[in-house]
Structures are given as structure tokens and as C-alpha cells.
């Protein structure tokens, strides 16, 4: 092994040469765009296409735009709700699958399906399922006697649309979270539980004093990762509601897309993107530094 290292050391430029293509792509399509959006957010673009430096003016304008402020608040609410639901439901399902009973591998297989399907496809399915008069969701509620004609149009009402999109997003995201929990549960040493059983600890005590503390690292991982994923949930919202009705399901990523490609207000869109990037970067940095140490 030493010999290989020594012989490889003589070609000191080689590693950089091999890394050149990947670094080139990462810089051209990720690093450079990051700097471009930040840089451009300080400029005003005239109708003629000239750029004029305006300092922080774009940011001041942006925060006086009530739709942006609304979508920012909406995004925060969205992230908090989605992450909380993931944490609770994911843990519940993971505990269920981890419980030794016949059929837990079947549940695990079924659970993977929403994750294995392309996200866009699941969204099309849900969009029609939630349709007011003709969707299967209302049909089920009707059979259960919970609603009667005329059926509510979920995606047409502010709260219904928000919950609907949240439903799709949790549905597609839960498998991943559950599997992270499961790998955490499987790494808890069996001896801890055996010792607790000898001491006569109840199920609840075992959960409270062994399982939960042992899952601490996993929970932090899920919070950070799911925050990052929730923040960028463009596809789900765009397909199911386009951010509507009005702006009730608008997130800053969907608003960014509208401002850029429908209103063609690029200076403003650059500013939104910069704010989005900063928020994302903070969470990504914390997450990466954490995994890096491990």
C-alpha cells in the first residue's frame, strides 16, 4: 500500500487532472449560478436590458411586496408543518415496522411505493383523487357518511388546497424519513433493552428512556434534511395547485418561478432566489458539518 502511495505521489498533477471534468461542471452549473444570482440581486434591469447598480433597493422593494411576504410566511408554516408531521408519522411507522410481527416486511415493501414512483406521477394521481365531484377521496368520505352532495372542492378552497398539497408531500416523503428512522432503530444495541427488561421497565419506559435518547442523532438529521427538502418542494405545489387558489399554497420557490418566467421581472426573481439560497445554505451547512464530523 505504501508503495502504491509513493509511486502515485510522483504524478502529483494527476488527481487534479482527473477531477477537472467534475469540477468544471459543478462550477459552471452550480457555483457560478449561485454567485450570479447573488450579484444580480443588487442590480435593476431597465426595459432596454441595461443593468444599473441599486444596492439593497431590490430587497426593500421585495419586502414591501405583500405577495412575497405572504409566500415567505406560507413557506415557514409549510416547512414547520411538514417536518413535524414527518417526525411524528415517520417514527410511528418505523416503530410499527420494527416490531417483530408477521407481515412487517410486507408493510415495508408497500411503504416504498410512493417513494419509488416519479414525484410528478404521484402528484397527477392525487390531483384527480382530490377532485370535488369526481374524485375518489370524496367518494370514500361519502361512503363513510362524512360528507354529502355537493362535495367540497378541496383544491379550490384555501385551507383544503394547503392541506391537500401537504398530504401529497408527506405521502411521497414519508418512506424516506421512515427508513432513516428504521436504520436508527436497528442500530440501538439489543443489550440496552434486555437490561431494562431485567429491571422490569414497561414498554413506555423503554421507549422514553432508551429508544428516544438513542434516536437523538437521527432526529436531528431528519429535521435538517426535511427542512431542506420541504423548502424546495416546487414540483409538488406546481403540479397540484400552481400555488393557487390565489396565493394560498404559494411558497417562495413557486413565487420565484412565476416572477421569473411569467412576470419576467428578473431583478425581483434574482432577489427572491438569493434569499432562498441563503436560508437553504444555512441549513445545508449545518447538516453537512454535522455529517462531516461523523
Amino acid at each position: 500500500m505504501d508503495k502504491v502511495k509513493r509511486s502515485l505521489k510522483t504524478f502529483s498533477l494527476r488527481p487534479y487532472f482527473f477531477l477537472l471534468p467534475s469540477i468544471f461542471f459543478l462550477f459552471l452549473f452550480i457555483i457560478y449560478p449561485i454567485f450570479e444570482i447573488i450579484y444580480s440581486s443588487f442590480f435593476y434591469i431597465t426595459p432596454k436590458g441595461e443593468e444599473r447598480f441599486v444596492g439593497l433597493q431590490n430587497y426593500l422593494d421585495l419586502f414591501s411586496d405583500s405577495v412575497f411576504v405572504w409566500s415567505l410566511k406560507n413557506t415557514i408554516l409549510w416547512v414547520i408543518l411538514r417536518v413535524t408531521l414527518m417526525l411524528i408519522l415517520g417514527l410511528g411507522i418505523a416503530l410499527l415496522i420494527n416490531y417483530p410481527f408477521r407481515g412487517n416486511s410486507i408493510i415495508e415493501t408497500i411503504l416504498i411505493i410512493p417513494w419509488a414512483m416519479p414525484l410528478a406521477i404521484v402528484c397527477y394521481g392525487w390531483k384527480w383523487m382530490l377532485n370535488g365531484p369526481y374524485g375518489h377521496f370524496n367518494s370514500l368520505l361519502n361512503i363513510l357518511g362524512l360528507i354529502s352532495q355537493p362535495f367540497p372542492e378541496w383544491l379550490g378552497s384555501p385551507l383544503g388546497a394547503f392541506l391537500g398539497v401537504l398530504g401529497v408531500s408527506v405521502y411521497t416523503g414519508l418512506p424516506f424519513t421512515t427508513l432513516i428512522y428504521l436504520s436508527g432503530l436497528k442500530s440501538i444495541p439489543e443489550s440496552l433493552y434486555e437490561a431494562a427488561l431485567i429491571d422490569g421497565a414497561s414498554i413506555w419506559q423503554r421507549f422514553r428512556y432508551i429508544t428516544l435518547p438513542q434516536l437523538r442523532a437521527v432526529v436531528i438529521t431528519i429535521i435538517l434534511l426535511e427542512t431542506i427538502i420541504s423548502f424546495g418542494s416546487f414540483t409538488t405545489v406546481w403540479i397540484v395547485t400552481l400555488g393557487g387558489p390565489l396565493h394560498y399554497t404559494e411558497l417562495i420557490v413557486t413565487y420565484l418561478y412565476k416572477v421569473a418566467f411569467e412576470f419576467f421581472n428578473w431583478a425581483k426573481a434574482f432577489t427572491i432566489a438569493t434569499i432562498g439560497f441563503i436560508i437553504l445554505f444555512i441549513f445545508s451547512f449545518i447538516y453537512i458539518s454535522k455529517t462531516w464530523r461523523e
Partner: peptide
């Protein structure tokens, strides 16, 4: 580190710049 951090950035944030390129 670059590899890890770049995979955290979703393309939606950079989409305008990518469009220009």
C-alpha cells in the same frame, strides 16, 4: 466538501441562471 454541499442545493433556486447559461 464541495460534493456534499452542492448536492444540497435544489435546481429551482438556480433555475434563472441556468436558463441564461
Amino acid at each position: 466538501f464541495l460534493i456534499l454541499i452542492t448536492q444540497m442545493i435544489p435546481p429551482i433556486i438556480l433555475i434563472m441562471s441556468l436558463f441564461t447559461i
